[in-house]
Computed example of a mutant assay.
Amino acid sequence: MTRGCFITLEGGEGVGKSTQLRLLATVLELRGLDVIVTREPGGSPGAEDIRNLILSGDKDRWDMKTEAMLFAAARADHLRATVRPALERGAWVLCDRFIDSNRAYQGAAGELGDAFILALHELGSDGFMPERTLVLDLPDDVIGIRAEERDQGQEIDRIGGRTLNYHRRVAQAFREFSAQDPARVRLIDAGGEREDVTARLLGAISDLL
């Protein structure tokens, strides 16, 4: 049996990851692929419980280091219970956020450093990485507007509610990851019509199909 393919979608607040994940999954399913859509933190019963711990409560509930360790624990369970079994049976797994979010949010913007985040990932998940990471990118000013529109009338979680400057550092970190590792990490223009963005995502994984 052919092993499946692990694709992650990344990006800052308000870039449209959840929408594009669903659209991309639909396109791949129409091509006859078995597609699993999942998310982080979460994606397995144990990891969903940890997700609630991470995202709920006061903004000072966890310090940055504890937050990063909770993410690492959630990921270890997610990979064990959901991702690896799906890949082994030949499914394509599309994941809303993965290790690069922790590198950007806790490592870069949170100032823990990339080495610390990757060491946790090695310890908890054996350094497991996706075949391709697609980073949805928008100009910083557009990200702020999109995030405000998305969150209007909704309760904002601990991380989404951080300062605009914090989220700008997150977006810049993602851009740097794509420059450092262009074979795995592809920067995708998230502007324009939804269908156009989906076409760009599909083009960025065409060599894997």
Rank of each mutant, 00 (worst) to 15 (best):
V27W: 03
L28Q: 00
E29F: 00
E29D: 11
E29P: 01
G32E: 05
G32D: 08
G32Y: 07
L33T: 02
I36S: 00
V37G: 01
V37W: 00
V37T: 08
R39L: 00
R39F: 03
R39Q: 09
R39N: 02
E40L: 01
E40G: 06
E40F: 05
P41N: 02
G42V: 09
G42I: 10
S44A: 12
S44W: 01
G46Y: 02
G46E: 07
G46A: 00
A47W: 05
A47L: 10
E48T: 07
E48K: 07
D49M: 13
D49Q: 12
I50S: 02
R51S: 04
L53R: 08
L53S: 07
I54L: 13
L55D: 08
L55W: 08
K59G: 15
D60Q: 14
D60A: 15
R61I: 14
D63V: 12
D63C: 13
M64K: 14
M64F: 09
M64H: 11
K65P: 06
K65E: 14
E67W: 11
A68Q: 10
A68E: 10
L70N: 13
A72C: 12
A72T: 13
A73C: 15
A74T: 13
A76P: 09
A76D: 04
H78C: 12
H78F: 14
H78V: 06
L79F: 15
R80W: 13
R80I: 03
T82Q: 11
V83G: 02
V83N: 07
R84W: 07
A86W: 00
L87Q: 06
E88C: 06
E88D: 07
E88F: 05
E88V: 06
E88K: 10
R89L: 02
G90W: 00
G90M: 01
G90N: 03
W92T: 08
V93M: 05
V93G: 01
V93F: 07
L94C: 09
D96H: 05
D96K: 01
F98W: 12
I99W: 06
I99C: 05
D100S: 11
S101D: 06
S101K: 00
R103T: 06
R103P: 05
A104L: 04
Y105C: 11
Y105E: 02
G107Q: 03
G107S: 10
G107K: 05
A108D: 04
A109F: 06
A109P: 03
G110W: 01
G110Q: 03
G110Y: 03
E111Q: 11
D114H: 13
D114E: 14
F116L: 12
I117A: 05
A119V: 00
A119F: 06
A119K: 14
L120Y: 09
L120M: 11
H121D: 14
L123S: 08
G124A: 14
D126V: 13
D126N: 15
G127I: 10
G127S: 12
G127P: 07
F128I: 11
F128R: 09
M129H: 08
M129K: 13
M129A: 15
M129F: 05
P130A: 12
E131Q: 14
R132C: 15
R132I: 06
R132T: 12
R132H: 09
L136T: 04
D137K: 02
D137R: 08
D137C: 08
D137E: 09
